[in-house]
């Protein structure tokens, strides 16, 4: 078990490091000349040189990378080009906001999705299974901004039940915050519902068809006991990993939603940074999202290892 833990953690670190390289390469190397990219094709060559020197982007690539990553590791994420201020505080606030939105979505979608998957699996082949599957399929593929706009139209403009903007007035209480976050969270719920329900259903079907379920039924146990004690326990194991990784997506995939609802989360920050070619902010934001995802994967693996006796307890004596 410990070995498993260490190995996973080690792999995560490697992934994180590679991610940093990729992000850096993507942001710094692809454009070629940062200064040129920022000032545009018509700017004066000298101005470009000055800017490059000021930003330190005329140094050798490896030096730039080493500099950036070593500072990042201790929390110095550089200064935003757009705001001329340290990136870190913006990122932290953004992260917190995104986390709130993600939490609302998470609390709605996980029970719904799992329940949906269980109901579908227990009624395999019957109409409700088909309906749930198709609803899930459809909801999961419609882009967030499309469903977001439809929702805004219905609940925000026509019925006026929910506020269009996700940003609540400063100093609002918990309830008001949730009130504002409901509408933006629904597209997220729609997208993830299908995915979670499908995974749960697949896990359930596999467990229902397995030999050990057959043994339990033939032992004469009542159906409810069989499902509760034998099927669910094994079916939900893979679902838990999936859910854990999806929560990470919730945080990082909010670019569209936060833009649509004018919400200052990390997704919105990334978008703004992208529009303004604010590379330090962009890099830091993307790497943070990646780090969160990697951590979530790691936690999911750990959780899985804890719950799966094969890994927890080890093999034959």
């Amino acid at each position: 078990m410990i070995g498993f833990l260490l190995k996973r953690a080690g792999l995560s670190l490697v992934t994180l490091w590679l991610l940093s390289v990729l992000v850096f390469a993507g942001a710094q190397l692809l454009p070629g000349n940062i200064g040129r990219a920022m000032l545009g094709p018509f700017a004066d060559e000298r101005a470009v040189e000055v800017l490059n020197h000021e930003m330190g982007t005329d140094r050798p690539v490896l030096v730039q990378y080493a500099d950036w990553i070593s500072r990042f590791a201790v929390g110095d994420m550089g200064n935003s080009y757009a705001y001329r201020a340290p990136v870190a505080p913006f990122l932290l606030t953004g992260l917190l906001n995104s986390a709130k939105l993600a939490l609302v979505a998470f609390l709605l979608v996980v029970p719904l999705g799992i329940l949906g998957g269980i109901v579908a699996a227990l009624n395999l082949g019957r109409p409700i299974d088909r309906v749930l599957t198709i609803v899930g399929l459809s909801a999961t593929i419609v882009p967030e901004f499309v469903s977001g706009i439809v929702l805004i139209l219905i609940f925000g403009v026509w019925l006026q039940w929910l506020p269009i903007s996700a940003t609540w007035p400063v100093g609002s209480g918990f309830a008001t915050q949730v009130y504002h976050l409901l509408l933006p969270s629904i597209p997220l719920v729609l997208i993830l519902f299908g995915y979670i329900a499908r995974m749960t259903r697949a896990g359930m079907v596999e467990a229902l068809d397995s030999d050990y379920t057959r043994t339990a039924i033939l032992k004469g146990l009542p159906r409810r006991t069989v499902i509760w004690r034998h099927v669910l326990r094994n079916a939900l194991l893979p679902t838990i990993s999936v859910v854990a990784t999806q929560t990470a997506y919730l945080i990082g995939g909010l670019v569209i939603i936060e833009t649509l609802f004018h919400y200052q989360g990390i997704g919105g920050l990334i978008f703004t940074a992208a529009s303004k070619k604010d590379f330090p902010m962009l890099q830091a934001g993307v790497l943070t999202v990646g780090a969160i995802f990697t951590l979530a994967s790691l936690s999911a693996d750990l959780l899985y290892g804890l719950l799966n006796p094969r890994i927890r307890v080890g093999g034959r004596e």
Partner: peptide
């Protein structure tokens, strides 16, 4: 169904191939 369940618990049992899969791995 209830009577069938009772019958399985008391009167008839089954053992089949591949005992590794016949047992619940998480229990």
């Amino acid at each position: 169904p209830d009577e069938l369940q009772k019958l399985r618990a008391t009167s008839v049992s089954m053992v089949y191939q591949d005992p590794g899969r016949a047992l619940n791995p998480a229990m």
